[in-house]
Amino acid sequence: MTEVYPKQKAVPVKQSSEQSAAAPKGVMRYLPLAIILAVAAIGYATLGDYLTFDTLRENREALLAFRDANYVLTVLVFILIYVAIVAFSLPGATVATLTGGFLFATFPGALFNITAATLGAIAIFQAARWGLGEKLAARMEASDGVIHKIKQGINENEWSMLFLIRLVPAVPFFVANLVPAFVGVPLWRYAVTTFLGIIPGTVVYTSVGAGLGEVFARGETPNLGIIFEPHVLFPILGLAALAALPMILKALRGKKGL
């Protein structure tokens, strides 16, 4: 007798289609970060000779004339260019900050610089978090030993750590942009600490840019090492110490508890 088997539902086909539909999503999450890395590589190879102090000096009169004729447009274009420089980690961030001071004075130039730098930092933060940050943060949270302790320490002192990496001049700006994305820092906290944390250094360089007219007249170059001079560095380090104070107090309380 011939056995009759019930017809089976095409479940494997359905699962296969779902998997194939999910695959591009997994790949697409890396696309923003891949674009940033590609543009950054191209930018360093092609724009390094253009986004310089010499370029600003050679085009200063044209820039001032354009600003006087189109102030609002100049502000918008400047902010967009600055955002792109930070978001794609292109060379010329310091020159862009000086240009903000040169074109718009210390204020509102500092406000334009801080806003643009924060927006650019948020862009690269989001790209890094979508691509790698969520997975890395999850692995660090699930791991044991030293890695888990590092992640836990960052979680317990996020505000202090985020302010510290922004205030300490020795920490490269792109490093401070990427590290929080890899440890699962919330976006709003990252944005707030970035905006407030970069104020001291940005104001210093913007004020240097505001005085570039005299520097150009003397045929000199600006003192970009001014942020490491004692009268500038010590107040910034004081703010960094203030940001680290909660961590220090927490550590001291922990030792007393032992």
Score class of each variant (00 low, 15 high):
Thr2Cys: 09
Tyr5Gly: 10
Tyr5Met: 11
Lys7Cys: 06
Ala10Asp: 12
Val11Ala: 07
Pro12Gln: 07
Lys14Gln: 15
Gly26His: 11
Arg29Met: 14
Ile35Val: 15
Ala41Ile: 13
Ala41Met: 14
Gly43Asp: 07
Gly43Ala: 11
Tyr44Ile: 09
Leu47Ile: 06
Leu51Arg: 04
Leu51Trp: 13
Arg57Cys: 01
Glu61Ser: 12
Ala65Ser: 15
Ala69Leu: 10
Val72Gln: 08
Val72Phe: 07
Thr74Trp: 01
Val77Lys: 07
Phe78Arg: 02
Ile79Phe: 10
Leu80Thr: 06
Leu80Ile: 07
Leu80Cys: 13
Ser89Leu: 14
Ser89Tyr: 06
Ala93Arg: 01
Thr97Lys: 04
Gly100Ser: 05
Gly101Ile: 07
Ala105Thr: 12
Pro108Cys: 03
Gly109Val: 11
Ala110Ile: 02
Leu111Ile: 13
Leu111Gly: 14
Asn113His: 03
Ala117Thr: 11
Ala121Ser: 11
Ala123Gln: 05
Phe125Tyr: 07
Gln126Ser: 15
Ala127Trp: 07
Arg129Pro: 10
Leu136Thr: 05
Ser143Asn: 08
Asp144His: 08
Gly145Lys: 00
Lys151Trp: 08
Ile154Tyr: 12
Glu158Tyr: 13
Trp159Ala: 07
Phe163Leu: 14
Phe163Ser: 03
Leu167Tyr: 07
Leu167Gln: 03
Pro169Gly: 04
Pro169Gln: 02
Ala170Pro: 03
Ala170Glu: 09
Phe173Tyr: 14
Val175Glu: 02
Val175Ser: 05
Ala176Arg: 00
Asn177Ser: 08
Pro180His: 09
Pro186Ile: 09
Pro186Leu: 09
Leu187Trp: 14
Trp188Cys: 08
Trp188Pro: 05
Arg189Asp: 05
Arg189Gln: 13
Arg189Phe: 10
Thr193His: 01
Thr194Lys: 05
Thr194Met: 13
Phe195Met: 13
Leu196Pro: 04
Ile198His: 06
Pro200Tyr: 01
Gly201Arg: 00
Val203Ile: 14
Gly211Thr: 00
Glu214Trp: 00
Arg218Tyr: 00
Thr221Ile: 04
Glu229Met: 12
Pro230Ile: 11
Phe234Gln: 05
Ile236Glu: 03
Leu237Glu: 00
Leu239Val: 07
Ala240Lys: 00
Ala243His: 05
Pro246His: 04
Pro246Trp: 04
Pro246Gln: 05
Ile248Ser: 06
Lys250Tyr: 05
Leu252Cys: 06
Gly254Arg: 12
Lys255Ile: 05
Lys255Glu: 14
Gly257Phe: 10
Leu258Thr: 11
Leu258Ser: 09
